[in-house]
Design a protein around this nucleic acid. Structure first.
Lengths: 212, 212
DNA sequence: TACGCTAACGAACGATCGTTAGGCACTGTC
DNA sequence: GACAGTGCCTAACGATCGTTCGTTAGCGTA
């Protein structure tokens, strides 16, 4: 039973991964600025100075947390919104996978959402651009559906942003000890999104808004 | 032209209101922990110590920002969800007013959303309870609509939370210099919510979710 | 003139912040 | 057996944090 990583260290990865994992949990709970290097070090079971053997700065830890999580999902799923092949079915699939993925990575996603401004300007802009491309793909896909006559959405841009708010909001209220699995919630959202939010009966009565 | 409040001070209120207004803007931009008393004081045009004549602590300023904004809207609009009188029309009205109100108070709402944990436990719990009662009223109202047969929502709780995520998410993407007024966006959301998200055609095919 | 109140001031308190310097123990390689 | 590299240590750096101190100028009232 001679284990070179006696306690806490989740598995093979080593200290760097362990620091990322622990720091993201702390950042998610108490915010980036609310957690000092001493708190991270103490949670890892190490002295503050030792962290600087694995990361060049505190912001570098935040980088490592946010870096891929957001972009990996987008890069891997953008094809489902390809204007040439998008269908109601592929939209449904994407909504489902989006909800499940975001829940599975909820800690990093929460940090990425909350602490984006703490990143260096270049890094933050990169993440923002990535998100923007995902948004735009959704808008475009819905536009295609409207043009093709199989989606009656009134305003593709507003519909897309409302849809994304809806599915990004799941993490804010879903609890694992509730009556529904995340997969069930995801399917419900796919259903609400594609046949409900985007596919409502086209009675399109645009009455005049109250203020310009 | 002898003005006792020469510069910046928005109007009658006096220093206290001025500090609340400036601090909420700073907190929204750089987060609660990212803004020191010296920064607030400097933005107000005063020495740090002077702020303690108006507030007993930094957290007290945050209290003043978050205190009413969240609860005032809820208290004023909860009647629209009264189970005995709720209709599709009153739901539509509430969604519209919700979106407009939240946009008009977007700075305080952003701070209230982001920095809720920085509040004292009692204060934070009070706000959470208030939000919860609003949520529950929505769930109950949708339930009434389903029972009454005029809302085909599949799961009232999930539908309500999805709806709230959708309308709370507007502030995250809406920009005033875009092509749509906030009133127009609000009306669109009311339309999407009531005739789309909640009122989709009842083809209710509940296929088995992938994972338990 | 004396008092009390308000709103502000400059200066400093102890604590904590992110970070760095320098050294010690261990490991594998020449 | 010397050497470089790794991982961690103790100790401390200067900066900034929220807050408190004692004081003062201005104003209204007795």
């Amino acid at each position: 039973m001679i284990d070179p990583e006696p306690a806490g260290a989740s598995e093979a990865g080593g200290r760097r991964e362990e620091i990322v994992e622990i720091a993201s949990r702390l950042f998610a709970e108490r915010s980036y600025r609310g957690v000092g290097m001493r708190a991270i070090a103490s949670a890892v079971g190490v002295q503050p100075a030792s962290i600087y053997h694995h990361f060049s700065s505190k912001a570098d830890i935040l980088d490592a947390i946010i870096a891929d999580v957001t972009e990996r999902f987008i890069a891997a799923h953008l094809y489902l919104l390809d204007p040439k092949f998008v269908t109601a079915s592929s939209m449904r699939q994407l909504v489902t996978e989006h909800v499940v993925y975001f829940w599975q990575h909820r800690i990093a996603e929460a940090v990425g959402l909350r602490e984006l401004k703490e990143l260096s300007v270049a890094r933050a802009e990169h993440v923002r651009r990535s998100r923007r491309s995902y948004q735009d793909a959704w808008i475009c896909a819905i536009q295609v559906g409207v043009s093709g006559g199989w989606l009656p959405a009134q305003n593709p841009r507003v519909a897309a942003l409302a849809l994304l708010s809806m599915i990004n909001g799941v993490n804010a209220w879903y609890r694992e000890d509730g009556p529904l699995s995340i997969a069930e919630v995801a399917e419900m959202h796919a259903e609400m999104a594609v046949t409900g939010l985007l596919g409502r009966p086209s009675m399109r009565h645009v009455d005049s808004p109250r203020r310009g």
